[in-house]
Amino acid sequence: MTTVAGADVPLGRLRWHCMRRGLLELDLVLQRFAQRELDGLDAAGRAALDRLLDYDDLELWEIVCGRRECEDARLKGLVALLRAQ
């Protein structure tokens, strides 16, 4: 999949990737996350979110649930934020 460089990630793209997943459970968690956090993310945060949203849906759900660790160390903070939702 295409992950563009941090500063270039349009908010709308991130929002779309949060609200149109393959799994309803991810739609619900990520849409709420987007509503609360998206506007406050800086460029690095947006780039990290973009990478996280590129994960396959089943993997991403397991990461959100804490049943799987995310190998990408740069995403730790974001994952913690999501798990705390």
Binding site: R20, R21, G22, L23, D57, L58
Partner: peptide, 12 residues
């Protein structure tokens, strides 16, 4: 597709 193909709802 509105989304990346493997994010279609069939995945569920």
């Amino acid at each position: 597709s509105k989304v990346f193909p493997t994010r279609s709802h069939t995945v569920a």
